[in-house]
Write a protein that binds this DNA or RNA. Sequence first.
DNA 1: ATGCTACTTTGACGTACATCAAATGGGTGG
DNA 2: CCACCCATTTGATGTACGTCAAAGTAGCAT
Lengths: 254, 254
Amino acid sequence: MTDKNVISLDKIKVACRDCSLSTLCLPMGLRPEDVDRLDAIVKRNRPLQRGDHLFRAGESFRNLYVVKTGAVKTFTQNNDGDEQVVGFHLPGEVLGLDAIQDGHHGCSARALETTAICELPFDRLEDLSTNIPSLQHQMFRLLSKEIGQEAEMMALLGRSTAEERVASFLLSLSERFKRRGFSATDFFLSMSRQEIGSYLGLALETVSRLFTRFQDEQILKVERKHVQILDIDRLRAMINHNSNCEQHQARPSS
Amino acid sequence: MTDKNVISLDKIKVACRDCSLSTLCLPMGLRPEDVDRLDAIVKRNRPLQRGDHLFRAGESFRNLYVVKTGAVKTFTQNNDGDEQVVGFHLPGEVLGLDAIQDGHHGCSARALETTAICELPFDRLEDLSTNIPSLQHQMFRLLSKEIGQEAEMMALLGRSTAEERVASFLLSLSERFKRRGFSATDFFLSMSRQEIGSYLGLALETVSRLFTRFQDEQILKVERKHVQILDIDRLRAMINHNSNCEQHQARPSS
DNA sequence: ATGCTACTTTGACGTACATCAAATGGGTGG
DNA sequence: CCACCCATTTGATGTACGTCAAAGTAGCAT
């Protein structure tokens, strides 16, 4: 455990130019010298442990955060005290974009597992963006991508059956893992059934039942957090059938 | 009818500095000289008639569009051929933000009534943003606001009852009309029950039934497209009761 | 090992909303 | 003024999914 942490700590301090995520992350498309200028404002703190907060709803906004390793959920709290999951964030994905607007975080963020984060002071990022047009462009694209993905999610929640939602969710994870160099068909869920259900607008029991059904139908093999996709085409068929045709895959990754 | 058009055409050509929307729109917070530089890239074409397309899904992205008067819906098409409404856009609200990402519109936009539009060539807007830091900041805020609003909508669709959805929708319109100087309690819906239902993830009959019920309960007076809110506090109570407490009102306007 | 706790699965049941169907009413064009 | 069309309303019925409840199971601390 302590050994593992030491290793992680070493890996975290990798500069943007040497980071394996650079093709997914903000530096994407920047010239090497601009990547270094970006790198100069990035802060890399010690990793979060499962359950640690990255920020809380209502806190004032100072930084954007990029997941380097691990996974983070964002969520809001309703008055019953239980939480509504707004999103899951994998390596290379940016958090805090909704807070630029009024300088306050609208949701909380919490690590689902041991997680390394790159921290970008937003005022410095803005300064840099005025000086590096391609960085400004990249920022616009990043924000726009988030808007497009959320619109897809709205369509999913507004129209789809439980089956389609769960299928979309699994395909989204699959795509995102794949782009990050992991297996597209064999991965571990870092979130609970409860959290998946909250995100998809379903009861946790419904999520569980669908996992079971997909397994019975030889589409998946599920054992607690461990998921193997056996027949990805049938998963894809589920969402192309009843749902929007615009989006070829569920949430095309980030 | 022709008379009306002539009058509209005059009003449309108003420059940003003289536009009543300038406090809601992109120029918000810019210095007067910068507003003029922004104004210089704005194109103002003849108004759209009800049913006209502003852009279609798949078209390549050239411009952002701001609604000046009227109303626009954005929507995607599913393979059954029927449409999923993604959003309704009132004066001062910007369309096309999701297309920055990959240079193609992900949804179509169509006028719900006679509508005047300001057109902003995005490449020129980007250039201007690098030269006017406050414009860049304004752009970031705009994109971020859209992200926050969509997240709220996701929460609404993921968790709420039909009652809450319709209440939220009405409160959202109310707030947005109010900020634009119109009555917050007496307005006309430019969209059909079908379109409202599609947007809220409900059947049109459910929307109709809830309008009727709210009217029976003395919360609304509805006569076809004409809505009067009689008891806005009870509408608010509906969404504070079962739904998220984070958001004070449904979709705080744009 | 042993027990505790949290998560997951599975079953039984109820309900909010979709769907189907028909009646009503406004608006538009002849 | 009439006829047609489409939006809306209203009613009847079905069902997908939520809720409640209980049993099974892994992980963890002692």
